[in-house]
Design a protein around this nucleic acid. Structure first.
Lengths: 156, 156
DNA sequence: CCGCGCGTCATCCTTTCGCATGATTTTGCC
DNA sequence: GGCAAAATCATGCGAAAGGATGACGCGCGG
């Protein structure tokens, strides 16, 4: 596409050149009487071809449309882990939903008794769930269990 | 800056033109014998000024560069609160550095005994620090203290 | 039907925690 | 130097947590 345009323009340029040279020859025979006309012709040709050169130059080389990449930083709100992967991590560790539910309450700082009251089960049940969850997490304290849960993506 | 460059180039262009015309005059006197030399001169001038025109055109009009904004999304690592503000929050709560240090270990899931061994103090000392810190945090359990510390920006 | 996983609850026991209280030493500052 | 705050350690006790074990019911799939 650009190659075709260039070739076409070169041909036109050549033709115009030829025509002008012919015109020069022709006018020479008619106005040879004028001694200094050569200089005038020279100037005219110079002006003409300079103009043509400018035109050709701009047409041939100018469309160099330089694309300048301006890096625009867009601060992505925050790739919030969205927290929906707790189920995969949970199953991978063999932790039941109930146990995770207890873990969530533990992480909020509730005592076993409070958790039992919140979930309408006995404190002993909460303790059982805790023990099992701690086992699966490799934790021996509730604070440790909370920490590991967060590391493993079980809790936010 | 660009204006100066353009003006300078125009002057150069004019000077070169004048020199060439003078050269033309001079050569005319010496090689006037050649009948067809005028055509040759015309062609030479044409080529010369065409080249000059191309050069001038590209230099004068070409710098038509279009700035294209390409939106590049850069995921900012994570607006991590950097976590250096723990000192202001700490002082606001009247929590001492030592107490915060103990809190950090508590958050990692260590027992009082382990914290004591890590910091080379007795378990009783750790307990005392814990008690005071819990008081200032309004917490009654270590899990609750950890949770509140994170809410208050004391811990990451 | 029987086993299995899960949730539930309980009991016993040990360890850890949390709290109160008091004391001594260290540190920072006027 | 002296005072106040902070850090250290101790003792005791009740509460909470943690571990081990056993038991019961329920749903589900072989």
């Amino acid at each position: 596409m650009a190659q075709d345009g260039m070739r076409k323009q070169v041909v036109i340029f050549g033709l115009v050149g030829g025509v002008l040279v012919t015109l020069l020859q022709w006018t020479e025979f008619h106005f040879v009487v004028l001694e200094h006309s050569v200089a005038i012709y020279g100037v005219l040709i110079a002006i003409l071809f300079a103009g043509a050169g400018v035109w050709l130059g701009t047409r041939l080389l100018a469309p160099r449309e330089r694309i300048v990449d301006r890096i625009v930083e867009i601060v992505v709100p925050a790739p919030t882990p969205k927290f929906a992967a707790d189920d995969t991590a949970r199953e991978r560790l063999g932790i039941t939903r109930r146990e995770l539910e207890i873990l969530e309450h533990v992480a909020r700082g509730l005592s076993n008794r409070e958790i039992g009251e919140a979930l309408f089960v006995s404190e002993n049940t909460v303790k059982t769930h805790c023990s099992r969850a701690f086992d699966k997490l490799g934790a021996r304290r509730r604070t440790e269990a909370v920490q590991r849960s967060k590391e493993l993506g079980l809790l936010p």
